[in-house]
Amino acid sequence: MTTPLPRQLVRGSSSGVAIMAVFDLLGRKWNMRIMWELNSSSLSFRGLQERCDGMSPSVLNTRIKQLTAAELVFTTSEGYKLTELGLSLMNTLNPLREWAAEWEDKVAK
């Protein structure tokens, strides 16, 4: 499975527009969860696996490779960590989290 990147064909778009590539990448099972877990601290492979409900090692390995190829995650002596670009993405998503909370309140009524 190839990593969705800007200027390439991605699921839902043949234009290669960057926003569609990031939606494809984050929409793949576990990728957003991995980003979420790494947002607060670096984690070892096993630690990340435990935080992600014990996903299989092969799936975690594939997802880490995708996020690394997309330059969102990198490996350190402490384990896996978000790159500056990955941290920037997570900060960019903060307003979306706020919007989702408002949406949840509206839908729950």
Rank of each mutant, 00 (worst) to 15 (best):
M1W: 02
M1K: 11
M1V: 09
T2Y: 01
T2R: 11
T2M: 01
P4L: 13
L5A: 13
R7M: 09
Q8A: 12
Q8T: 15
L9W: 09
L9H: 08
L9C: 08
V10Q: 04
V10C: 06
G12F: 05
G12V: 04
G12N: 09
S14C: 04
S15I: 01
S15R: 12
V17P: 00
V17Y: 08
V17N: 08
A18I: 02
A18M: 00
A18N: 00
M20D: 10
A21V: 08
A21H: 07
V22M: 14
D24G: 03
D24P: 04
D24K: 04
L26E: 08
R28F: 00
K29S: 13
K29C: 01
K29H: 09
K29R: 13
W30R: 09
W30Q: 13
W30V: 14
N31M: 02
N31G: 03
M32T: 11
M32Q: 05
I34D: 00
I34Q: 00
M35S: 08
W36Q: 12
E37S: 11
E37W: 01
L38F: 04
N39I: 01
S40D: 11
S41V: 05
S41P: 00
S42R: 12
L43N: 11
S44H: 03
F45V: 10
F45K: 12
R46D: 10
R46M: 03
R46F: 01
E50G: 02
E50N: 10
R51Q: 05
R51C: 10
R51D: 08
R51Y: 03
C52E: 04
G54E: 06
G54K: 11
M55C: 14
M55K: 02
M55P: 00
S56N: 10
S56R: 14
S58K: 12
S58I: 11
S58L: 10
S58D: 14
V59L: 09
V59H: 02
L60S: 11
N61T: 15
R63W: 01
R63T: 07
R63P: 01
I64Y: 05
I64K: 03
Q66W: 01
Q66T: 07
T68R: 04
T68I: 03
T68V: 03
A69G: 00
A69M: 02
E71G: 03
L72M: 15
L72K: 04
L72V: 04
V73A: 06
V73H: 06
F74W: 06
F74M: 09
F74R: 10
T76C: 02
T76S: 15
T76V: 13
S77C: 02
E78F: 14
E78G: 08
K81L: 04
L82W: 15
L82E: 14
L82Q: 14
L82T: 11
L82D: 12
T83D: 06
T83Y: 08
T83E: 08
L85E: 15
L85R: 15
L85F: 09
G86W: 05
G86C: 08
S88L: 05
L89P: 05
L89W: 06
M90C: 09
M90T: 06
T92V: 10
N94Q: 15
N94P: 00
P95G: 13
L96D: 02
R97W: 05
E98F: 03
E98V: 05
W99A: 15
W99M: 12
A100E: 11
A101E: 11
A101N: 07
W103L: 14
W103G: 00
W103C: 04
D105A: 14
K106H: 06
K106V: 02
K106T: 01
A108S: 13
